[in-house]
Design a protein around this nucleic acid. Sequence first.
DNA 1: TTTAGCACTCATTTTCCCTGAGTGCTAAGC
DNA 2: GCTTAGCACTCAGGGAAAATGAGTGCTAAA
Lengths: 356, 356
Amino acid sequence: MELTERKKKVLRSVVDLYIRTAEPVGSKAITELPDMQYSSATIRNEMADLTAMGYLEQPHTSAGRVPSAAGYRLYVDELMADYRLSMDETKSINTAIEEKMQRVDKLVEKVAKLVSQATDLPAISVASRQAGATVRRFELILAGQGSVILVVMLSDDQVLNKLIKLPVNVTEADLKILTAVLNAAMTGLSSDEFTPELLERVMASAGTAASLVPIVMEFTTETLSRQASTNMAVAGQMRLLGQPEYRDVDKAQRIMSSLDEDALANLPAVMQNANGTQVLVGPENVAQELKDTSVVMTKFDIGDGMQGMIGVVGPTRMDYAKVTARLSYFAESLSKMFAKPEQPQLPAAQEDAKED
Amino acid sequence: MELTERKKKVLRSVVDLYIRTAEPVGSKAITELPDMQYSSATIRNEMADLTAMGYLEQPHTSAGRVPSAAGYRLYVDELMADYRLSMDETKSINTAIEEKMQRVDKLVEKVAKLVSQATDLPAISVASRQAGATVRRFELILAGQGSVILVVMLSDDQVLNKLIKLPVNVTEADLKILTAVLNAAMTGLSSDEFTPELLERVMASAGTAASLVPIVMEFTTETLSRQASTNMAVAGQMRLLGQPEYRDVDKAQRIMSSLDEDALANLPAVMQNANGTQVLVGPENVAQELKDTSVVMTKFDIGDGMQGMIGVVGPTRMDYAKVTARLSYFAESLSKMFAKPEQPQLPAAQEDAKED
DNA sequence: TTTAGCACTCATTTTCCCTGAGTGCTAAGC
DNA sequence: GCTTAGCACTCAGGGAAAATGAGTGCTAAA
């Protein structure tokens, strides 16, 4: 059965009110809304219908109504008003984003923090790199006192390095040869092509500095496989405590612990094929622990073959309109920021290299 | 007035019991302890004395006693029994630590996580580097298509890099010259010696590739000043929720928010001159928000001119013996680990370099 | 079709009383 | 002079009972 306009209006009102107050909504409260010209009795009838249709629920006989999962779903899909970000909001999001982001892992952390802050809910942020980077170029630099710096340039323009200290002395000439050998034999390969046979073959032709080869190789494979990995950060778990439904410490703790890693790790999987902003209402969540909890997620693009995702976890009663609006805006801004090459320096990366 | 042996024994028992149960301790409970040959009346008298002396407090007339801040202080300083770590505990700490640690920021995070886990309390971990690193060596590598890789080797054996993309083409020869100029003029300097005058001077003698100089310089100064910075991580805030005194969500939230950054940032300052493990009981804390909370901290050594600190925050009623024991052991193990150069590879560092 | 009115339900709040742990003091015992 | 048994007293916490009031469904009139 299709819902009448009036029923929709009532349902929307109930959800809106419940989102605001976190208390079951009674017929009287609805009548007091501006733009509601019916009496409480009429509303009661409508609410009775909506309850029968499964969009509302009644915690107990003498209480008001609360949206069911189906109710939220309908609300999210059709009913909710577009939330217009205020100037203030967009501005604060923008300035937050524009602070230079350093490395990917830092970025992920920072984004999680920002999103959590913007929504006042716990947030997740994930950046994952499809596997497939290869080495484009090796370079070895003599650094004095038996130290060699290995520089590896990847196909996606990343540059990595490692300081290697050797017991034996090598000469500039040795390194030249070795560099040539490495570049000839080991570029363009994916991480699983670095086999022991390859190692032997390269060592055979490596000359004096052959002892470096295993180190180079280990570093390279480790690096390449790390490239395929995923960076993930969770921020602001404690914000859940601000929500009345989690004033029960036990409940909060249960959610929080599942917020840590496990259940979250497969959230991105859900995003896989979906596009745009996605909302998972309560029981639609796969993870058992999050049954009372809704999740809102969006993808965004970081260049360099990386995919980003930001998401927010909160009570089913969260303010979907506001949250989705902010999240989408965030995602857009981030994508834009990464797509804009003329933005003066996207900051440099840097790292320690150590080898005792 | 000096405390009699018996008073000390009673005080210790009260604190021990209170730590275990989180409930006010009555005279009867004390008599039931093994090794307590006095009647409850005697204990009552002693407890009355201890209360008068300010070591114990009485929440209300008909309740047992609770240690006061002074009581905890005395307990921590003189009374508490040494906590012997069990084999299991040391083993689990050791295996945790021995997993290879990557970069400093990651290390700080991981250590915080481990400490929090080991103590079941929120933990902080800080690593700060005294300023003072200088550049030992610059190296420029031509990377094809108008790209140049800048490699900077610091005095503390860190190696950093940055990929620079240029609108103009430079030749291998240009870079050779520039490298020589850079190494002649800009090594051995601390970050505040990189003045605009220096920049001009270097650019004047840099030849064709002069346009690279500002980029090199900015990267270097930024890098050097970052070296002097502090890495800090907080982990396991939620564990506070496990403690009965924080079952009140509001209280928990208040503490947690101060656990975030602000109040913590000056904790390390307190450690500055102190050595070994330090305990701050409740009101001894500078930060107002932590008045009901105790802090236990220890320093440890990371080499490379870096100082580490780990600390734990918990209710005043925390198990000081256990916590200090674990914390000290942690600190020792960490220091040992960093002091051991023969440990085969302390893992390589790596990083993205980016410049669109 | 809408609405006023009414009887009914039931979670929540308030009130009250009871219980029991714990105390301080006193007087007897070692 | 310590120690301890005994006793009267205090008071937080818990549970039962009562009061409150928000909200409902249904009926009958507009």
